[in-house]
Design a protein around this nucleic acid. Sequence first.
DNA 1: TTGTACGCGTTATCAA
DNA 2: TTGATAACGCGTACAA
Lengths: 351, 351
Amino acid sequence: MKKANKEVTIYDIAQKLDVSPTTVSRALNNHYSISKETTQAVKKLAHSLGYRPNSVASSLRTNKTNTIGVIMPLINRPFIASLISGIEDSANQEGYNVIISQTHDSYEKEIANAQTLYSSRVAGLIVSLAMETKHYDHFYPFLQNHIPMVSIDRISTEIETDRVIIDNYAAGFKATEHLIQMGCKRIAHFGGAQYRNIYQGRQHGYIDALKKYDLPIDETLIVHSKLSLEEGWKGAEYLLNLPAPPDGIFSANDSAAVSAIQYAKQKGVCIPRDLAIVGFNDDPISSIIEPGLTTVSHPAFDMGKIAAQQVLKNKLTQDIVQSQTIVLKTELILRASSSRKVLRETARKEW
Amino acid sequence: MKKANKEVTIYDIAQKLDVSPTTVSRALNNHYSISKETTQAVKKLAHSLGYRPNSVASSLRTNKTNTIGVIMPLINRPFIASLISGIEDSANQEGYNVIISQTHDSYEKEIANAQTLYSSRVAGLIVSLAMETKHYDHFYPFLQNHIPMVSIDRISTEIETDRVIIDNYAAGFKATEHLIQMGCKRIAHFGGAQYRNIYQGRQHGYIDALKKYDLPIDETLIVHSKLSLEEGWKGAEYLLNLPAPPDGIFSANDSAAVSAIQYAKQKGVCIPRDLAIVGFNDDPISSIIEPGLTTVSHPAFDMGKIAAQQVLKNKLTQDIVQSQTIVLKTELILRASSSRKVLRETARKEW
DNA sequence: TTGTACGCGTTATCAA
DNA sequence: TTGATAACGCGTACAA
């Protein structure tokens, strides 16, 4: 049983060129101490031999990998896919790879993923917390060993990392205030788990906007769920069959908002006249649904880019640096689902 | 300048327990030769010391990583995100990680990604080719060294790998035939680059369906582009302003189809009465647009799962095995955009 | 400008 | 059931 082709190593090159492996290693890494000629010869032979650096060996020796670990709840959502795309983009520019894992919003899976990534000795970690997660011990190995860690979007203040987030409170406030300015008097809210920062922030913004305009806060109009399409439909069904149905909904994501629109339409409730709706995320569906869904847009791709940059920056400054929180602005994208009055601002053109 | 915490290694455990590193290694890997007591003691101490296996070192020694490399054109598309999700799912079940890279449909980027993944000594590779790619030398290192490689969706017959694809020809045929059965006489096609199998297959299916029903093939009705939203809009603009506009469009993806619908609507062309449209992919937008877009659904998640399983299976059977092509079925999802007649089949309920 | 010798953390081999 | 030793491929302090 013959083994498959042995891999070409720097030793093979050294031998054929009658130089030391050291020289080869240096030549391949463009070390200044090696002459142009040797360097060229080495590279040429390396190429013709089909040499491929073994970064596993290199990583072991230098105790550094060129890989950034990413833990996300679920990768096939538009917002998260864009986050990852941004991370990938920045990382690649700096010569890093990205290793991705998803938690499916499970705490156990998140622990397992964190451990595997730690074992892989990733150079840094970017995490968006699972819905379920309330304890953070599984991240301590990273913190203790000063592996740069950045929390993104879904974060916890209980763990000391850099953070890249949006101002969920401001966005929720702005969205709700918009509905109020459009003349809504009874505004409902589709929210998520309140121990997760993003949903808490959005809901607080909603409540404070109501308060500011002296509108009553009616608990029966606040519906908590996982904000799926199904739950949006059911939420709308519940709300629109109340004795006193709402005339506006601020939904913490677009999926739920979109199916609320669909439910309302099939029930004959006119949007935005009878019911104005604002979503969150600016997913592609929000500009396709009719009427177009007014929504809050995240700069998802940029968030990813920034998070990756933050990780790589922290690799340099290994010293105790104050952990930094970067808060990005959101934008309210005005579309027909909330346009009960002529707007002074010009809505972004969409098609 | 004190170094950060030294990592705990099997030597540390060995020393404290007064056994050899070999024993520790074996105990941690549940080797049969180590007694229950020793194993337990080792694991207990490992845990309390916060030991984390270094898989970089392990990989170097065993010459095996637990990582599967993935090269995709662009990760933030619904279809591809689902593919990846499926890959991740299978891989994780077998204890493998997934390292993802995107080519942005650039040949150069694909080469670079392949090289980096090879350097990382991934245990296997899953590739969906970039739009541009016409040469495949960058994959030879994988083939030569018997690293399991699976092509998925966008493949080439010029490179000998396992393949997981859908029957694009059959799908294109079925979609076009459906339009014909709906009474369309002049059917246009939005297609992609013809050297990429998926677009070629879909277009051939389209053409053969026309032939089967003795409809003329009119080159002016075949529009090639990258099938973006913008290009779908322009394509529709072009087609609907022809002297003899088409009464049906089969689009090779949903984005272009959706914006064709939007263009048609704003122009006052009634869908499906004046123009019936069928897309491809069953992206979320296709069930949100009105009228709902009839489209071809891929089993994307399953394709990913199967590809990953294929990679891992081939790791075992290292011998020369005939490379295998797995062709998955597609399904025509009937929605309003093509329903010019009452259908005998019952359309899947969507909302 | 180049080479020698060692070590990174783990595991396979062989011996006890 | 356990241990001593070498080896995986590379990078680097130190020497030349």
